[in-house]
Amino acid sequence: MENMVNIFLFGKKYTVPENLTIMRAMEYAGYQLVRGCGCRNGFCGACATIYRIKGDRELKVCLACQTKVENDMYVATLPFFPLVKQVYDMESIKPTEAVMMQLYPEIYACIGCNACTKSCTQGLNVMQYIAYAQRGEFEKCAEESFDCVMCGVCSSRCPAGISHPQVAMLARRLNGKYLAPECGHLKDRVQEIKDGTFNELLENLMQKPVAEMKELYNNREIEK
């Protein structure tokens, strides 16, 4: 028999196997999840969860699909957090400091408490990426925030009411579109295709009998 632990889901006690994640423990306890469960694998940020181990002062946050249960764990899920998402037209905005001032002015009210960083479920330096955003250093903000799953936990702890993942999202899009170096060979290839450079080659392949395609495939040269 597996080792069991006691956990408290929204305050109610359940006994579950100790090797389960919080998400699977909830299901084991009988919950059919609809909210708070998306990818089940740490990518989507749907399963933000707050917990406290009995007797521990510290309140912890995590992703329920990525965290094992512990004995005497008090669990509350946070399947939705009201973030602020500003809308903008990617074609007309510019990657300047003024953009942040315009769209997310609250970031300048950061008091440097570091609660966001301490709570990040991905272990990111959130306060730092907000600082980069304040200074219009979007490339650095993009890099620092890249692994963000937009779970919103940091925002739930922020006394300044900042929607960190949305700020970072804007920074990454600005970086991807305007700041990262342009790719020459990509533009060239798109143009070649528009010019019909490969049409004949492709049409030729499309018409070949399978036997001939097999021959070509099995003897194709493979780049090292």
Binding site: A142, R173, L174, N175, A180, E182, G184, L186, K187
Partner: peptide, 19 residues
Amino acid sequence: ILWLNELGVEFDKAPDGTM
């Protein structure tokens, strides 16, 4: 790929823009 890049998707690139 170009469409995505122009929407702001950050692809891994070398400093000269080569993918």
